[in-house]
Amino acid sequence: MIIMLIISFFLDGLLSNLLVFSNYLYPLCSLLSLVIICPLFKKRQVNKYYLFSMIIGLLYDIVYTNTLFLNFILFFLIAILIRMIYNLVSNNYLSLIIISFFIIVLYRITIYLVLFVVNYKLLNINILLQSVYSSFIINFIYVSLFYFIFKKAKH
């Protein structure tokens, strides 16, 4: 799980530099790795999962976005939300894809609203929508790939 988090973290940086040919390929691997690894933590390990989410959020803040504590908090809150959702739905490929899409939409909207509130960005619905749908394709591939790798490894 730690290895996957580390790989996902570096994949974010690597893919952003590799996929320069399209405006529709924005990776969110670090965030979505939290969705993939969540079912692997048992109930008594839940604190460990939250700790991982905070560490990866803090690293994302420092290394990629220079927004100290913003992703740290958001990743933690999203981890809590993912945990709550997984308590309601079963762990299968379809639920993974739906949760991932939901998390992408939630994350982009929250970040954009925070940036709007602090006057970093002007409110433009088109930019927000573009940020959401430009994250779908590559993250769908990423989530699917890692889900099947994990499934195979489990067997």
Partner: peptide, 10 residues
């Protein structure tokens, strides 16, 4: 260039 526009809005 090492990475680009990861946070999308930044």
């Amino acid at each position: 260039v090492v990475n680009r526009n990861i946070g999308y809005f930044f």
